[in-house]
Design a binder for these strands. Structure first.
Lengths: 166, 166
DNA sequence: TATTGTTATACTCTATAACTATA
DNA sequence: TATAGTTATAGAGTATAACAATA
């Protein structure tokens, strides 16, 4: 698989982040597949819990394109985890509501997700774990250097990736 | 873009890694585009520097599918950065050699890459930076919990992602 | 018969464009 | 005229399968 030493990959920040993202994603996909959902499905489902949001609003908070949202909702609805109800105030819009089963799945998924995170971060001593998370937030969050993708220059096609946040 | 607080994203490990990977990749794509190469192009080119590897061997160390390697080499060759020479010992195989221009580009790219890494990690105090890198290596490298993607269960399609290591 | 590199192709994923029905 | 949701489709990226030349 990978033949480089820890010392070599330590100097390769792209590799560290890519690999962490990639393997954790695979792990999460596998773990949630037992519930018949994807990380994205969970993301949408959990954000729909209040039951007040239209499909479009939900797409916005989940950072999804509205067309991607349609596909995601189709799956969730077919799986019986969410329903599209007509909005009482706007006949174009549709309110998304989770079903009872959907709420149960969200709960179970939350447990699974927390378990995976604990399993992964559990290998680090408490102090190092907190420092690492603080550091990641400093890089990715607030006004960190990895907060916003700088627009690619002319001719460079931007990588399209979905929000896989969980 | 993202509307969650630092406290919220701190609890979302998937988001932290995905975003870090994604934004750093975009940054790297943009930075290397000035040299007319991609991170993958750099990866292949730098590993070809010794000039002894066949295309297949190079694909293996760069963690690329052989068909992806063909496309990558087509680009590098067209850009005048690498050449395919017939192997003296195996008439099926082709040895990859970097051109003089290729070597210059690798050098410049290395400087750019180091600059981006320094820019990103520079926001962290020395000690925290070292702790974070150690932690990432503990997760991703050696026998860390994110070293190998657990095979996805039946029916779950694995995400296909290329090595973007730099 | 197996392997190197190539070509052709299929598949997944996401976004753009066009359409409908409302507003 | 603009907006919510849908459908159709295009585009990028990667892998699988088949092939030619050689081992």
């Amino acid at each position: 698989m990978d033949n480089r030493s820890d010392a070599e990959i330590r100097a390769d920040l792209s590799y560290l982040f890519d690999k962490a993202s990639q393997v954790l994603t695979a792990r999460m996909n596998a773990a949630l597949a037992e519930l018949g959902i994807t990380p994205r499905g969970y993301c949408v489902l959990s954000k729909a819990l209040p039951g007040e949001l239209t499909q479009g609003e939900l797409a916005e908070v989940a950072l999804l394109d509205k067309t991607t949202m349609v596909v995601t909702m189709d799956h969730l609805e077919k799986a019986g985890l969410a329903r599209r109800h007509p909005s009482p105030t706007d006949r174009r819009a549709r309110i998304v509501q989770t079903t009872d089963e959907g709420r149960r799945v969200v709960e179970k998924a939350r447990t699974i997700i927390d378990g995976v995170y604990a399993e992964v971060l559990g290998v680090l001593p408490d102090e190092q774990r907190e420092t690492l998370l603080d550091g990641m937030v400093a890089l990715v969050g607030g006004d960190g250097p990895l907060r916003v993708a700088k627009p690619a220059p002319e001719g460079v096609r931007r990588t399209r990736r979905s929000s896989r946040s969980v």
